[in-house]
Design a protein around this nucleic acid. Sequence first.
DNA 1: TAGTTGACACGAACGGTGTTCGTGCGTAGA
DNA 2: TCTACGCACGAACACCGTTCGTGTCAACTA
Lengths: 240, 240
Amino acid sequence: MSMGKVDRVRAKAAKRARRRPLSKQAMVDVALRIVDTEGTEAVSMRRVAAEFDTGPASLYAHVRDKDELLRLVLDRVIDEMEVPTADAWQDVVRGFAHNVRSAYQRHADVARLSFAHIPTGEKVLAGSERLLRAMIEAGVPDRVAAWALDILSLYVGADAFEGWIMQQRFSHDARGRPVAEVDADFVASVQHDMGAMPADRYPYLARALPVMTSGTSDERFSFGVDMLIAGFAAQIPEQP
Amino acid sequence: MSMGKVDRVRAKAAKRARRRPLSKQAMVDVALRIVDTEGTEAVSMRRVAAEFDTGPASLYAHVRDKDELLRLVLDRVIDEMEVPTADAWQDVVRGFAHNVRSAYQRHADVARLSFAHIPTGEKVLAGSERLLRAMIEAGVPDRVAAWALDILSLYVGADAFEGWIMQQRFSHDARGRPVAEVDADFVASVQHDMGAMPADRYPYLARALPVMTSGTSDERFSFGVDMLIAGFAAQIPEQP
DNA sequence: TAGTTGACACGAACGGTGTTCGTGCGTAGA
DNA sequence: TCTACGCACGAACACCGTTCGTGTCAACTA
């Protein structure tokens, strides 16, 4: 049953010819598919390599690090964003935030990778340019516009990441149960964690807790963006 | 040279008597010290166990998970915050944000653990209560106040985490070199990453890039908080 | 006091992880 | 035809989180 040396070499060559070749692109494809189905934590060099019928060492010819691979994944995801096209600067800001968030949301917890990473894809550059132009032309000071871009990116990434974690927790608990029930359970469990949170010592908190989870996550996100927009708007100096 | 059984048992007993006993508290102490000196990624069950002269299995009698241990670490850190005492609601919000951030900043990248975790420490409950009361008494609607707490917590955590990463990157590059030079290098490297970022295609972005890194990280953070405060303020309905 | 129970301790092992080293193959240029 | 050189990759290193089964010891019961 054992193969001779020639056979082994031939089988190896055939295998290599059959599968698609390694490349940065192809590796990102594979990694992103893993992210989509199982999240960023499930990506491992061995796992990616296995999809190419090889060992992990092969990947290091194309990529310095696991970190670099994940950064490439994030870059690809973020370049899925649509460039906002609205007229009013407020709508441009809203569109930017919404579109970046949508891109993240399509890919599990990929937003986890967004912290302290300055993206450089075509789309996100165009989107940022659009946002800055809209704000500055509306009279927002340069500094405010630049910082606004920074803050928005941070907020969007954080929201998308937190949203994914929450969704995971929910879908784990909720097996076809009614939403209201799951929601009530959540509030109850938080109250329990807070040590029954004596309502006489923390009356406002007790009152706020059910409100905090009211509304959809989309509504809460939009609310946050609108709060920031209102802040930016207040920075426009009066016209003489 | 080899020990008899009796000797081995005696040595073991002596060792056990000498070191301090395992407990949730003590484990959090050790884990937090590791976090402070080397960051959250450096915490491992083996490492913590080694500080008690034992193997990793011993820890599982006190803690369900590595996750639980890290959550306990975060809870301890967050309970270092000072409860804001200002009068004006805006200053309460500012104080809350600043104090939580300070607690995070004292402990490396501990803010990484803050996402989707609802803290339950005494101090943070008191701080939240104070914040909610200040806002609601100022006429902010319940829903806005509750969501404001949510958004602030998210923003503070994200800022502290990002700040730590940036600081790491800086202190790695900057070995006693003048700050301005390091800063210029940073801008240059970002520009390089952006594919030289043609200034004719992205004029606003090119202009905004140096501005984005202007000011201290504290200033940028305060700016963000003030933007949110302005947004919240705009939600106070007019008095009849 | 003798026996039992239960909480804590922990060595060993399982099945993973990222990364490096040394070697080999195959192709492009001299 | 010979020589480099980029890519491939098996093997190994030094870790990781977690579980299992056993061991030990203190406190409670009879």
